[in-house]
């Protein structure tokens, strides 16, 4: 465990909490892609099945349970409690375009051809593209609430910190996980455009709106 990993996990948790608090306080999930949130719930579910079979550490177990809870509560708030505020019209990304290639790739490129390992690989590949429905929604409506951009910033920061974590682990432990690293780089690239807008607009007090 190194400082980049811890900060990455904290940033990831913070992103999820920001989103939950935003929805809860405003009693609205306007501008949030329910599809991205379903994908994240699917990511955690398929990745954390080892909660039932393998104990790594108390930290690991607690974080996994918290992440799962956050993901499912978010999906419930969007499609259950506050579904009247959900902008399904603009959440029109076609999930099959992501799911079909991701399922195919996880069967082709994995560390071992076992159910849990294929599901883990599936979750890694899926996480790298899960934010696309949300980014698509923002590009479609041309704007995002400032609180939504904070959520996206911390989610992107988590990815960037994990990259630093992998570089650190490679140098100190000679450890690297090819599947996670490649997917992580791809995922981080998706945030670059957003980071640029966040720094040039949101941090200067302006609302994020696209021309």
């Amino acid at each position: 465990m190194n400082v980049f990993r811890i900060l990455g996990d904290v940033s990831h948790l913070l992103a999820m909490v920001i989103l939950l608090v935003k929805i809860w306080r405003s009693k609205s999930c306007a501008g949030i892609s329910g599809k991205s949130q379903i994908l994240f719930a699917l990511v955690f579910t398929s990745r954390y099945l080892d909660l039932l079979t393998n104990f790594i550490s108390i930290y690991n177990t607690v974080m996994k349970v918290v992440f799962l809870l956050c993901a499912y509560v978010t999906v419930y708030l969007i499609y259950g409690k506050f579904r009247k505020t959900f902008d399904s019209e603009n959440d029109s990304f076609r999930l099959e375009f992501l799911l079909v290639p991701v399922i195919g790739l996880s069967f082709l490129e994995n560390y071992s051809f076992t159910p849990t390992e294929i599901l883990w690989t599936f979750s890694i590949y899926l996480e790298s593209v899960a934010i696309l429905p949300q980014l698509f929604m923002i590009s479609k409506t041309g704007e995002a609430e400032t609180i939504t951009t904070h959520y996206l910033f911390f989610l992107g920061l988590y990815r960037a910190l994990y990259l630093a974590n992998w570089i650190w682990r490679y140098h100190t432990e000679n450890f690297y996980d090819q599947i996670a690293v490649v997917s992580g780089v791809v995922q981080t690239i998706f945030y670059c455009d957003f980071f640029y807008l966040y720094i040039t607009k949101v941090l200067k007090g302006k609302k994020l709106s696209l021309p």
């Binding site: 990831h12 080892d50 550490s57 690991n60 974080m63 560390y111 996980d177 090819q178």
Partner: peptide
């Protein structure tokens, strides 16, 4: 890489 169900990262 680590194999099997040993992935310790979240």
């Amino acid at each position: 890489h680590k194999n099997g169900s040993e992935h310790d990262e979240l």
